[in-house]
C-alpha cells in the first residue's frame, strides 16, 4: 500500500508533507526495552550468587529447563512489547496535501483514529514547544483549529513545527482563494 492509496489521493491533489513524530521521542521506550533485557541477567546472577548450582544444567533436571523456558518467554514478550511500542510511535501519521489534512492516530494494535480537515477551514494554527529536549531538538505540537473550535487536529511532537505552521497558513490561504473563486 502506498500513501496515495491510503488517503485516496485525488487527481489534483499533491502531498506537501508526510509527518511522523520526531525519532528522539522514541528514545525512552528504547531505553526501557534495554533495561527489560537486562532483568533476567541480573536475576540469574543474584540467584547464582545466593544459591550456587541451583540452576546448573547438569544437576538441576527440573529447575534449569523451567528457568530457561521462563527466560525465553520473558525475552520474547519484551521483543513483542518493543514492537508494539514502535507501531504506536511510527503509525501516527499526519499528511498535508494542497487540499486537506489527514491525521492517522494509532492506539495499540487494534485501534486507529483517522481524521480529515479541509485546508480552507483552518482558522488558527498554534505551535507548542514545551520542555528542554523539544527546544534543543526542535520538535513540538502543531494545533490546528477550525472556526467552530470544536474540530481540532494536533500534530504531536513533529520536527520543525514552525516551518509546518508557516506552510499550513500559506496552504490554507491558497485553498481559501481557490474555493472563493
Amino acid at each position: 500500500m502506498i500513501i496515495s492509496n491510503l488517503i485516496r489521493q485525488k487527481s489534483y491533489e499533491k502531498i506537501e508533507y508526510l509527518l511522523r513524530r520526531h525519532p528522539i521521542t522514541f528514545l525512552p521506550s528504547f531505553l526501557i526495552f534495554l533495561l527489560m533485557l537486562a532483568v533476567p541477567v541480573v536475576v540469574y546472577l543474584l540467584i547464582n550468587n545466593l544459591y550456587p548450582n541451583i540452576l546448573d544444567p547438569l544437576t538441576s533436571k527440573i529447575l534449569f529447563p523451567l528457568a530457561t523456558l521462563s527466560a525465553s518467554i520473558y525475552y520474547l514478550g519484551t521483543c513483542l512489547f518493543f514492537y508494539f511500542r514502535f507501531i504506536e510511535f511510527y503509525l501516527d501519521i499526519w499528511i498535508v496535501t494542497n487540499d486537506r489534512i489527514v491525521s492517522i492516530n494509532q492506539k495499540g494494535l487494534f485501534s486507529q483514529t483517522i481524521s480529515e480537515m479541509d485546508l480552507y477551514r483552518i482558522q488558527d494554527v498554534t505551535v507548542v514547544v514545551n520542555g528542554f529536549f523539544p527546544s534543543i531538538f526542535k520538535y513540538g505540537d502543531v494545533q490546528i483549529k477550525t472556526a467552530s473550535q470544536n474540530i481540532k487536529i494536533i500534530f504531536k511532537n513533529v520536527p520543525k513545527p514552525n516551518e509546518i505552521r508557516e506552510a499550513l497558513i500559506q496552504l490554507s490561504d491558497e485553498d481559501r482563494k481557490h474555493h472563493n473563486s
Binding site: 500500500m1 521483543c79 508494539f84 507501531i87 511510527y90 503509525l91 494509532q106 494494535l109
Partner: peptide, 29 residues
C-alpha cells in the same frame, strides 16, 4: 508471539509505513 508479530508487520504494510526505519526495526525484532 508469531501471530502478533505478523499482525504488527501487517499494520506497517497497510498503513504505507514500510520505510527504511520500519524495516530496520522489524528486522531487529
Amino acid at each position: 508471539f508469531f501471530i502478533f508479530s505478523i499482525l504488527n508487520f501487517y499494520h506497517i504494510v497497510v498503513t504505507a509505513s514500510f520505510t527504511l526505519a520500519s524495516f530496520i526495526v522489524s528486522f531487529f525484532v
